[in-house]
Design a protein around this nucleic acid. Structure first.
Lengths: 229, 229, 229, 229
DNA sequence: CATGAATGAGCCTTCATTCAT
DNA sequence: GATGAATGAAGGCTCATTCAT
């Protein structure tokens, strides 16, 4: 990851700007990406000027276009990395003991990833409202996450744990929408309803019961899962 | 013109431009509002030019500013009317027979209102990502809808119909987020998963079971509630 | 002057708008003139909108153009009346006892007229910087005032009271400029140097001595001329 | 470009646009300033469009805003340079032989500076009628000039050369107003009374006598100071 | 005459992108 | 590669004046 392997041409969007060849170029590019993320978080996509990014990165104005063909392009790459992070952390621990435990764990992991990236999630929402290319990218990421849940639900149905009349795909989508949008309203829009734990517990409970799984006997009583805020 | 009934001063936001005093003025204003809605739906807020609106309304450029102080202002008013519509249609039928029936009915009503206003809902989402005043407006409308559900859940809990361990407010929020965002992804983003009925049935089922209500015995089997698309 | 005789077509500027024929029309016109003066004083010429004037006069927007062909036109008429006032009050008491007394009296009169019209004098200065027609008007009024002083100086020279080497016309101009601009800087620009009396006394003293007249023996010692502020 | 000498940060007003960093940038900026002065002189502040300036400077429209945040800003800088010029040339020769000589010299110097900058002085007068920031700037420059005269008058009073009953500050203000406004009416407004020499001689004579100084014995009789027009 | 709506040319400013050095 | 200046299309808003009722 240090050797420049990350610029192997897999970045999204049109590759109008060639991958930098020199060590120095790679560093400048990285500086711009980091600065872009910070500025986007600070001001949103619409209110970010290319000049803000270059100033923040302590790089000349013109250098920006050496590495990115447009403002959209940097954003796409910043967002791509973020989705990477979200997916990696959320998906990793897939083999849990019981469905209930796994749901609870997944929700926690998603919450933590969301919290870590809350500002950017807001901006991503913003860009998704007017950039088609970007909507597509989001759709893919969502599909990956939802597909996983859908498959789990299917498995649980076959094991007799989840109500058989539910469409696994549709249920997974709806429940993901619930979790995702609840976190959005809470962490991004600041619709502050209550403490972290109570919100997460509510989401868990609704999620679990909606599927017809047995409500967890005693949650958090021992503080084992306490996440705090 | 003598009765002054048309200047009721109920328009939202600071009214920099006074309400029209004549019949003719009121008509022009209405034309502009209608045109604005159509153009916003067509191109989104960001890509809409005031010139588009006036052209569409067959009105001189300057006339726009006779009635609205800015592009934001028309949008706010268009959105306000839309929220009015959403709220009116969704809230009216409050006294249903059983909780299950009422939930199913409410979801249908919300779906239909959403469908009717889908394009604008997308634009509203867009504007909400960068306009604070607008976020506030949305928060209020959401609070009104959610509060209603929360009170119903509380009642059902006291009647022993719904799991007592749920926080009515949080549960109402989360479930509203589920329905709202599912419809958004589906009707606005075009994340088309399946037919209308199956999606709505899934939302109903999840909603009902999440609260611990008895799943409806036989839904839609007779096609009585079929809404189609 | 009450019978509408003032609208006999002698107003300055092009007479695009005909003189009003009815009593009611005359009243409306008068209201507009008064409102115009107040608004001009309040906001200056450039920042005054026709709408401000009509609103202030409680008259319909369109009515303005029934009486005045343009914003410039009202201003010209307002200014004309003001010059009238300045001239009438300053010129009237011409037959004083000694030159020294007459100068002192004239300066006081001018000061009082200026004070009464200070705000408008500022606006007149503003308009004079870009409107040629208006510059011409001002030139005439100035010439009338200065001419009078010049003739007096000539008389005093022939009477051996004033230094003979001065050009009466040039001296009158320069001294008028001194008084006029000092009052402007003080009353309009707010370059506040000291109390009224001290400024006026200084102007008197400079004026008198500059002409070679004997400095007044004891001024204001008895408070007879005290003008206060 | 390495010495950074051109970024001395001494430009007036809030410098929204940073000083140019390169030689080329400095040249463009200078071109814009020169063009601005010429266009302002030609059309006045109000009738000058940014497009006029850029066209005159043979520079793209947008380049203007690379160097100046607004039309006001260039004007402020043009005016600042002009005041600099006025002050430098007028103030330098402070140690003259006799008060009479010094007054005459100062008036000449002021006249010459005024003549050189007559058109701009008119525009400055224009802007001063509606721009507060600008009024302040003028006040300062005036105060600097007047203060100098006031101190000289005070000295002459203590030396018994000037009437002791005059307030040095007020007298200096009034006499400066006389000279300044006379030159304004003559050179700017074109109130052409007579030849240059006669006007200046009159100003000198009035100035000198007003202070009670002995009228110069033989002025200009030999044409030594003839300035012409 | 009174009223107030309708008109549209005009102007400043922004800012992504391109270029010269 | 790096730098920062150059470009110019685009768009929101103003407001004096004209018109229809």
């Amino acid at each position: 990851m240090r050797d420049g392997a990350e610029t192997d041409g897999t970045e999204p969007g049109g590759s109008a700007a060639p991958a930098p060849l020199t060590e120095r170029g790679a560093r400048t590019r990285e500086r711009l990406l980091a600065a872009a993320r910070e500025v986007f978080e600070e001001r949103g996509f619409l209110d970010t000027r290319v000049a803000h990014i270059t100033r923040h990165a302590k790089v000349a104005y013109g250098s920006f276009y050496t590495y990115f063909p447009s403002k959209e392009a940097v954003f796409l790459e910043v967002a791509d990395r973020l989705f990477e992070d979200m997916t990696r952390h959320v998906l990793v621990p897939s083999a849990g003991p019981s469905p209930t435990e796994r749901i609870r764990h997944a929700n926690r992991a998603y919450y933590e990833a969301y919290l870590r990236n809350a500002r950017m999630m807001a901006i991503i929402e913003q860009v998704a409202t007017f950039n088609e290319e970007f909507q597509e990218m989001r759709r893919k990421h969502r599909a990956a996450l939802v597909g996983r849940s859908a498959r789990a639900i299917g498995r649980w149905q076959r094991a007799g744990l989840v109500a058989a009349d539910l469409d696994p795909e549709l249920a997974a989508r709806a429940l993901a929408a619930m979790v995702d949008h609840s976190l959005y309203l809470w962490l991004v829009q600041g619709d502050d309803p209550a403490g972290t734990e109570r919100l997460l517990d509510t989401l868990d409970a609704l999620y679990i019961r909606a599927l017809g799984l047995p409500p967890a006997p005693a949650r958090n009583a021992d503080g084992a899962h306490r996440t705090g805020r």
